[in-house]
Design a binder for these strands. Sequence first.
DNA 1: CCACTGTTCTCTGTATACAATATGCGGAAT
DNA 2: ATTCCGCATATTGTATACAGAGAACAGTGG
Lengths: 221, 221
Amino acid sequence: MKSPEIRKAVPLREQVYAAILSQLRSGAYSPGERITEERVARDLDVSRTPVREAISQLHQNGLLSSRERGGYVVPSLTVAEVVEIFEVRKLVEPHAVLLATREFGDKELAALDKAIKQETKAASSKNPDSFAAANEGFRVALFDSLSNGTLTGIIAQFGHHLQFIRMLTLKDISLRKDIVKRQKAIRDAIARRDETAAPALWEEYLSFAQAALVSAMEESQ
Amino acid sequence: MKSPEIRKAVPLREQVYAAILSQLRSGAYSPGERITEERVARDLDVSRTPVREAISQLHQNGLLSSRERGGYVVPSLTVAEVVEIFEVRKLVEPHAVLLATREFGDKELAALDKAIKQETKAASSKNPDSFAAANEGFRVALFDSLSNGTLTGIIAQFGHHLQFIRMLTLKDISLRKDIVKRQKAIRDAIARRDETAAPALWEEYLSFAQAALVSAMEESQ
DNA sequence: CCACTGTTCTCTGTATACAATATGCGGAAT
DNA sequence: ATTCCGCATATTGTATACAGAGAACAGTGG
């Protein structure tokens, strides 16, 4: 028997996906800029084929806009679109939290606690990246293990967009602390199986996050 | 000036997508069967490249399941999954109907009427295909022109699944007539801008459709 | 100086070739 | 007879080659 190495070679297309995504988040491409397969392929020193597949998936996930006659461009998210996303999140995610209050056991609560601990640790850091990662970890811990797979799939889609827009607000340290406080309250409501409070708290949290995001976007104009 | 011909060549990948989809719906592939790129490519007499892209999109839309070590298989929809989908639809679509009551003008109502007329015509036909198409037309007329693009995108995703499961129930002619009656009532509620009745009627309709579907699936076991 | 047109160049869409890996079968050894 | 090993094959992943559509641009005629 071979040693328990990583038997699963990571497909190039996924590495390319991650690479483009990280470049998008870091702002290496500016909104409206055209993304060409050839250039990405040269930059990453792979052939066009995996690049093409990665770009296609990015597009399916809403992280790249398609041009009229083929090709893709970096999307620019408007305030109106952010509001749209949050409207839908408020429709869907509170119900997911309700499921969590019904379904979560010790293991899931522990995952939540772990994410909250990481957020707490990262809350005062100068660089918001680690907090953003912990924040995403909380989302995953909360939504990814629910029984309704269709629901988790849709919520995961929002996550793709969030990777983009989250960074706009998380520079503010007092805001981060507020987020952690709210998430702790939600965790406790889930722990005591409070089917009324937990979804309501999450909806409040969404409204709060939406307001912070919108004002941050309007300022940065 | 040139004549207004169709300047937009339909990409092969989209033709392939449509071809596979139609074969899936017609039951040419049985659930659990493996789909190989080469076979589809041979059948349609194109190269593997567009086939590969079409299959990838089918998978992203949930119409093909991925296997553990690469490859795809025809998914088999269980009753539990159908219930999941309808749970989420009931969460999202009534709100979309609410938007419709606020936003629809004469043009959108006319589109609804046209779809209802086509459904009426097809209601008594022996073969359910034309009714299924008209039913999808109603969905498009109702949901595709709303202001919240994120919402319409998510609802469109459900449509992909519906293409599969709709056929299970539409053989029943009296059921079709019931559907048309309900959709007329919803159209009227939207026309008189009844923001309470229209979403509620749509939710009832969903519960009704869900029940019909579940019992049809349990019978066909 | 402006408009038109032909050319060139860039980019995507599609095909094909090559590589790597799983899969299934058959034979040999115990 | 059964199990294990190895080989042949099937299938996906990646690279490269080729074709066609637009876009930019320069040159020419008005």
